[in-house]
Structures are given as structure tokens and as C-alpha cells.
Simulated assay, not measured.
Amino acid sequence: MTIPILDAKKVIRLSLSIAALFLVSLFFANMVSAHGYVSKPESRALLCADGVNYDCGAVVYEPQSLEGPGNFPEAGVPDGQIASAGGVFPKLDEQSADRWAKVPISSGPYAFEWTLTAAHATANWDYYITKEGWDPNDPLERSDFELFCSIDDNGKRPDFTVTHNCDIPDRSGYHVIFAYWEVYDTANAFYQVIDVTFDGEGEVPGPDPGDGEDNGDNEAPAWDANAVYLSGDKVSYNGLIYEAKWWSQNDVPGETSVWELVGEGEEEPPTETDPPEETDPPVDSDYPAWSTDTIYLGGDRVTHDGQTYEALWWTLGENPTNSNVWIQI
């Protein structure tokens, strides 16, 4: 049977559409497959997630997702979008002398630390710092930075905690350090900027050097299934203290490798009648019901099983009740 020419064209268009959708799905699957942020000193994105920086946009949910095109500085993201990895979270590109909290730091030897939520084969790690005389009230550009430390991993897959010993050049006052993680087997890289001050008057206190029984472990807040936790956050659950090893939401302490047991709390383990009764948030009828065949973008809201959810990033076919792509509102 001969297929009409018009029908054959429709078949070709349909085939191309399916292929395009498949490639888009692969792209976004790759974008969320490997993540990481600088946890020491705390990056601009991490301080947003910790509530120290304000008015940051959706990066508060995923400071580990600042992924953009690689091969910086020859290629990569445009000038003015270095902090946001090419506009992924545009609020991060706002730049002025007093826009962001600053981490106290000193010139000389320093151990930079990355926390990875997915370890990706790595090409290299590069560290840049703003030059003397840079303008803190202008958008960040390539010409503002100079490279001071580089580590070549030659495709090695890193641990979930990565430490690099570098020598920070002499500086004074407010500067921006740009940490860059180039992935080995994709064309992408991760971008993290860190606001620092070399005069010892930063707005972010350093970590508590104390340890042992007086380190505050027994004062950790109770674990909350709806909260977003980052590496180093501590919670109490069933009379025990747990510390998050990387980004977490809905991961029950003691039941997943996200949490590490670090101590015991002061209170007795709660009984089955101890937890307060949970009440369901009101469902906004203006939001459509979630559909397994619909593509949702960050900020889209749906209803499902009597609850309202908001997408944190692109998603297709991921059930809101058991996926970190969705947050209950």
C-alpha cells in the first residue's frame, strides 16, 4: 500500500518530534545527574540556602545545581552571568559592594572544600580571584579574575567530599573567589562564586572550633520531612543526633546514607503518640492535577493526592509524592 505524500511528511515530523523530546529528556537528566557546591568557604549559593543571603530565588533549594557550559574562560558562560552559571539562577548575578554576605578569610594556604551530591568524572578544578582594583559594583566578568590554583583530575571520579589545598594571593577588603569544576565526559561545568573579606570583618562567623560534649550536638532541631537540609546540618530524630552528608529532603535519618549518626540527644526517644498530628495544607483548586505525560518547569504548581506541589526544576513523569523534584507547599 502506497503511503500518501502528506501522511509520510506527518510521520517524519512526528518522528523528529519524538527524537527531539528524547534528546531534551537526556539533556535534563544529565543536568541533574551530578551536582556540587563549595562548602568551605561557604559559596554565595550555599549562604542563600542557609538563609544568610536574602532574595536569592530558587537557588535556596538547590545550591548544587549551578551547571553551565564548560571550557572556561575560552568559552563557558557569558560575562555578567558567571555567578549564575549562565542565568540558571539569575538573582546570583546581582553584584554590588554590599549585596552579599562575606566570609572572613586570609591570604596564604587554604583548604577549599566541595560537597558533591553526585560525583562526576572530572577534568579539572580551577580557582580564580578578583584582581586588585576590581569594581565590586559592576557585573562579574572574565577580565575581573586571575587564576591562582588549578587541579587536573584527568577523568577521575571524585569522592563526595573534595578538598584542594591552594595558596590564596595577597588581597585586602572585599573580593570574589570563583571556583570552577569542569566535568570530564560532558560539555558542562559547575560554577560557584564565594564572597570573601580579607579584613577580618566579614558578616559570616567561622565554624565553632569546640568539640566534644559542649559542641551543641544535643541541641539539634527535630528532623522535619518538609525541610531542605545541606551538608553539615544536624537534626535530632528518635533521640539520636544525625548530620547530613549532602543535600537532603524527605530522607529519613537512620534509614538512608544521606545521614550520619553523630551522637545522642538529651530527650528520650519519642513514643508513637509524641509527634504532633500533621495537618494537610489547603489545596488550591486553581492548580491543575499532576499528569504523568506533562512536562513541568521550575515554579509550576500542581495538585496530587489532596496536596499542592511546586516543581523545583524541569520534570516529566516524576510522582510529586516521592521525588525531590517536587516540594510540597
Rank of each mutant, 00 (worst) to 15 (best):
D50I: 01
P109L: 03
V77W: 01
P63A: 12
P69Q: 05
V88P: 06
E74N: 13
D152Q: 12
V59F: 06
D79N: 15
L147P: 00
G70Q: 03
V59C: 13
Y174H: 15
A123W: 03
F178L: 15
W134H: 06
L92H: 12
Y180R: 09
D79A: 11
G80M: 14
Q81R: 14
Y110K: 10
I177H: 06
P90V: 13
S84R: 11
A49P: 06
N154V: 05
Q64T: 14
V60F: 00
V60E: 08
A187L: 13
S106Y: 02
A121F: 01
S150C: 00
G87K: 15
S84W: 02
A75H: 01
R171P: 00
G155T: 02
G173S: 09
F72R: 04
S65W: 03
L116I: 04
H120K: 08
P69V: 08
P63G: 14
A111D: 14
P109Q: 04
G76Y: 02
V60C: 04
H164V: 14
H164T: 15
T130F: 04
V162P: 05
P169T: 11
G173M: 11
W114Y: 12
H175V: 11
P136T: 08
K102Q: 05
T163Y: 05
H175L: 11
K102H: 00
A101Y: 00
A187E: 13
K91W: 05
F72N: 07
R171F: 11
G133V: 05
Y184H: 13
H120A: 09
A97R: 11
F148M: 10
P109I: 04
P136K: 12
D93V: 10
R171C: 04
L140T: 04
E74H: 04
D159C: 01
F89T: 10
L140S: 00
D152R: 11
L147F: 00
Y61V: 02
N188D: 14
V176R: 14
H175E: 06
N137S: 09
L66C: 04
I177T: 09
E74F: 02
W114D: 07
A187I: 08
D167Q: 10
V176Q: 09
V103R: 10
S84I: 03
W134Q: 10
Q81S: 14
